[in-house]
Write a protein that binds this DNA or RNA. Structure first.
Length: 508
RNA sequence: GCCGCGUUGGUCAAGGGGUUAAGACGCCUCCCUUUCACGGAGGAAUCACGGGUUCGAUUCCCGUACGUGGUACCA
């Protein structure tokens, strides 16, 4: 292999890490692993007005949780530092200068008011959003329209300016997308994007090209929303003389909201009751916390698996994969073109499937905090371990264990008494009272417990079946859970007696 | 508006000139289980539309519709 694969994920640290972001990380990571390459994390913090305290650390936390650890990052620099664009600021200017010298870019002095005025004046029903492009740049205040001496004077006087790319006229830009095939754009409809902002920072357009080139990135994967600006990036590679080193592109499909249409947003999650961020995100400005997949009870491997299947498939019937398997099987060509609606029900199914495959002892550690948050103390992890083995098949989220296993450790607070009340009678009260008393001197075995109940019921002309469900409700609180006698065995004589006694009182 | 991209059941999807158009989630029925769940057996449900090309199009081409993204000194 001539060029070792190098891919990058380049988030801007402005808030919670979205599902779609994690999927982009995942596809980058899998591609790197598949090809024995390097996965780079680069922080895109060129917009200083959007800086959010803690957002970068949060991204690292999310990557740690998912296990999608970058090989190179601001925390683990490789051979191409720095890994934050704000720290790379001095590197961009020379390329902007080069483009200006070549006539491929120009200075623009228009103030935001002037830009707004231009857009307002040129706005028509047919063209609601006029661009700063080959047609309009001739009417603006830039180094294309102003005399050279004036441009120089303005710059010397410290007048704020930006550098814009000068898009050529009447050209067609072609490129090959690994997922979508050949794509072309007419340069006439692409605007003269700002390359260098007035604060000296590059925009995404300049930064992504310069950084990818300087960092030897071989494959650039990003969301579909970048497709319209791809021609700008392609032109930049050409103008800078880097065409041979241009990474191969792949524009990933979007993750859509489950109902209606459009990109999935945090709002949709709030509205429909599911997380959108990988982990809890506490916004330092509003103080508000948004739930994450981790905290709602997802296993990281399930989260990853679910995301992989949202837009990619192996071509086989298999749907449950470990990260290691995905690393072997992934191919960017098998990623779908169309956007995928997010389905929370299926996401939970993936989690349920991975819960079944997970070690009980590991689950016990993860479930404990959920129990404790619900006021159920766990002082013996091995007991929780044992219980998890009994109930895991009915849990979709780690939090489900509270409902499904809490009663093993603590008497249920609410009893579904209505489920048994209607058909309750004195005889049954006698059966339960006698059985509970008999517990003091019988062998503590499943079958013995069951036989004892059968016999006592028979003595009062009650069928065992009539008393099984009531016993379950008394012990667990409702019509669910593993075998009643398995539960009875586990919680012990005193707990049984106490729960039956208080239930009988509620029935009376 | 303009430009780009997309479109296989409700959802995720396989397939890709001739197939009974896989599979999964969800839904429904039944079996298992003195509960629930798991598991098992079934069921309803799909190639956006119109033109070509072709002996034959879900598949290839062209339109249309619809959706979506972009149209910032945000990424």
């Amino acid at each position: 292999m001539i060029n070792p694969v190098r891919v990058r994920f380049a988030p801007s640290p402005t808030g919670g890490l979205h599902l779609g972001g994690v999927r982009t990380v995942l596809f980058n990571y899998l591609f790197a692993k598949k090809h024995g390459g390097t996965f780079v994390l680069r922080i895109e913090d060129t917009d200083q007005t959007r800086f959010v305290e803690g957002a970068e650390a949060y991204i690292f936390d999310c990557l740690d949780w998912t296990g999608l650890t970058p090989d190179e990052s601001p925390l683990r620099p490789g051979d191409y530092p720095p890994y934050r664009q704000s720290e790379r600021k001095p590197m961009y200017r020379q390329y902007a200068d080069q483009l200006i010298a070549q006539g491929n870019a120009y200075y623009a002095f228009d103030t935001s008011e002037e830009l707004e005025a231009m857009r307002n004046n040129l706005k028509t029903p047919e063209n609601p959003s006029p661009q700063y492009d080959h047609k309009t740049r001739k009417q603006m205040r830039n180094s294309l329209t102003l005399p050279e001496a004036e441009v120089e004077a303005l710059i010397n006087a410290g007048t704020p300016y930006v550098v814009r790319i000068k898009m050529p006229e009447n050209e067609t830009v072609h490129f090959h997308d690994l997922i979508r095939g050949d794509i072309s754009h007419e340069t006439n409809v692409v605007d003269d994007k700002v390359l260098l902002k007035s604060d000296g920072m590059p925009t995404y357009h300049l930064a992504v090209v310069v950084d990818d080139y300087l960092m030897n990135i071989t494959h650039a994967f990003r969301g579909e929303e970048w497709l319209p600006s791809a021609p700008v990036h392609i032109m930049l590679y050409k103008y800078l003389g880097w065409e041979a080193e241009m990474p191969k592109w792949a524009h990933l499909p979007l993750i859509l909201k489950p109902d209606g249409n459009g990109k999935l947003s945090k709002r949709d999650g709030d509205r429909l009751g599911f997380p959108v961020f990988a982990m809890d995100w506490a916004d330092p400005k509003t103080g508000e916390t948004t739930k994450g997949f981790k905290e709602i009870g997802f296993l990281p491997e399930a989260f990853i698996n679910m995301l992989a299947m949202l837009g990619w498939s192996s071509g086989t019937e298999q749907e449950i994969f470990s990260l290691e398997q995905l690393e072997q099987l992934f191919s960017i060509e098998r990623v779908n073109k169309g956007g995928a609606k997010f389905d929370y029900e299926k996401a939970k199914w993936f989690n349920q499937q991975h819960i079944q495959r997970a070690d009980n002892s590991r689950l016990a550690i993860l479930v404990k905090p959920f129990m404790e948050a619900a006021g159920i103390a766990i002082d013996d992890l091995s007991k929780l371990d044992q219980v998890i083995g009994m109930v895991k098949e009915r849990c979709h989220l780690l939090g489900d264990f509270v409902q499904q296993a809490g009663f093993f450790f603590k008497a249920p607070e609410i009893l579904d008494i209505d489920a048994i009340k209607g058909k309750w009678n004195e005889d049954k009260t006698k059966v339960m009272t006698e059985w509970v008393a008999s517990l003091d001197n019988i062998a503590w075995e499943h079958d013995v417990l069951e036989q004892s109940l059968t016999d006592i019921a028979a003595a009062h002309n009650v069928k065992k079946g009539e008393v099984m469900m009531p016993l379950r409700v008394m012990l667990v609180g409702g019509k669910f859970g593993p075998g009643v006698f398995d539960i009875a065995l586990f919680i012990g004589k005193e707990a049984i007696q106490a729960r039956v006694k208080s239930s009988l009182a509620a029935l009376a």
